[in-house]
Amino acid sequence: MNSRQRDQLATLVFYSIAAGITALLFGLIGYMLYQGFPKLTLDFLTSPSSSFKAGGGIGSQLFNSFYILVLTMLFTIPLGLGGGIYMAEYARDNKLTSTIRTCIEVLASLPSIVIGMFGLLVFVNLTGWGYTMIGGALALTVFNLPVMVRVCEDALRSVPREQKEASLALGLTHWHSIKTVLLPAAFPGILTGAILASGRVFGEAASLLFTAGITTPTLDFGNWNPFDSVSPLNIFRPAETLAVHIWSVNTQGLIPDVRAVADGSAAVLILAVLVFNLLARWIGSLLHKKITAQA
């Protein structure tokens, strides 16, 4: 075999791998959507779940998923950015920094069920809150923070050195140059990180089982007082998310239409992640264009 044939063979191999992966993904998603799609009615999406009878919906779970996502990102993005800025711009090249970096890497690969147990100890028992939305959001923050710090650090480090030099040479203070030059330039990378983290929040079940719980009280969607116990906005209530719901109906559901509810929930979960990603990317690119003045 000469080198031209080897080149063709390599091309063929990589094309087949790509085709295989794509087919597998489309197959999976297609199957889930095909199975779940007939369930997707407005009633299913908005009505509360039922414990025994058929025909329950996923209204509260869907709301919980989004709400816990917002809460988690509220903690994760500022903390992750702060950590990333520290690691990229302030941390000296020494033992302490490399220890911190190792810790971040270990944390990033911690199994989510372990984080769930940690959350149970700290956010459920130690605080005495019981199973709460906020406990779940904090556990997910622990889950996401290492990745977010890492992504922010990488995004900031990949801003060309010249840009930073230019800002320093103009007489900017370090913080000012981070704020007005580095962060805007690193924005696309940070956004990607935030979107990936959000996807993980959406799909996460294990670390929520013992923190946000597997039940949701009957919610009154007319009551938006965050301190009221039946209000959807109350952060000190148990909050079963969609991913947790899929797990719980499959393992301990007493309803006769378990399969249908699970299929429908899975389809909604996928679609929600998809819509969220597209939306976040679109808004992100609008913002980025505005900052960089690119038409």
């Binding site: 060309p160 030099e165 320093l168 040479a169 007489g171 805007p184």
Partner: peptide, 25 residues
């Protein structure tokens, strides 16, 4: 004071390094 020094002593680098902002900005 580096800020006031660099306001008085400006620098142009080997390779043009404009920020990813508009010309005006």
């Amino acid at each position: 004071d580096l800020v006031s020094l660099r306001k008085q002593v400006g620098m142009v680098f080997q390779k043009g390094n404009p920020f990813g902002k508009s010309i005006f900005e």
